[in-house]
Design a binder for these strands. Sequence first.
DNA 1: CCCTGATTCGC
DNA 2: GCGAATCAGG
Length: 179
Amino acid sequence: MTTASWTEDRVGALKKLWLEGQSASQIAKTLGGGVTRNAVIGKVHRLGLSGRAAPSQPARTTFRAATRPRPAAPATPVQAPSAPRRIEAAAPRPVMTAQPVAPAPAPELPGTATVMTLGAHMCKWPIGDPSSREFSFCGRRASEGVYCGEHARVAYQPQVRKGAKDGASELARSLRRYI
DNA sequence: CCCTGATTCGC
DNA sequence: GCGAATCAGG
């Protein structure tokens, strides 16, 4: 596709990823096609989407409302106090400790859900490199928030006991299964 | 300086 | 409708 326009597919993926909590830049990278984060944000706003759950990298809440750049704007009347933006609790992002690459999806291991097929109540544990075409989601029943039981336990990392070397290696081994 | 989203405006 | 430029902030 030479003209990276907003096709149904891309818009669908955009919506999904956006509501998923992905950042604009991340979505832009995922969608590829030379779309920038500005394009993503622009489209998001055009679609009426806006403020959702959680940002990305840093877990900070950048929610402001009206900002006034000022490019040759004659006395603009006071802008409305901004529309109500949803502020929901976000599911903790999975900790990806040095994720090398997604080698082979185990035999019966889940991970066939793509960004397009991932349903609302399907585990959204990412599998593989988001920028790769092989990228998929766990897809199992999301019983714990946005993740299935198993992935929820990994997402909500209990905390690593210090000095528990056996436990550490065990954790590392169990984590490997999720990649 | 990295990142985030928000807004405006020229196309 | 689209997105770069810009803004505002963590």
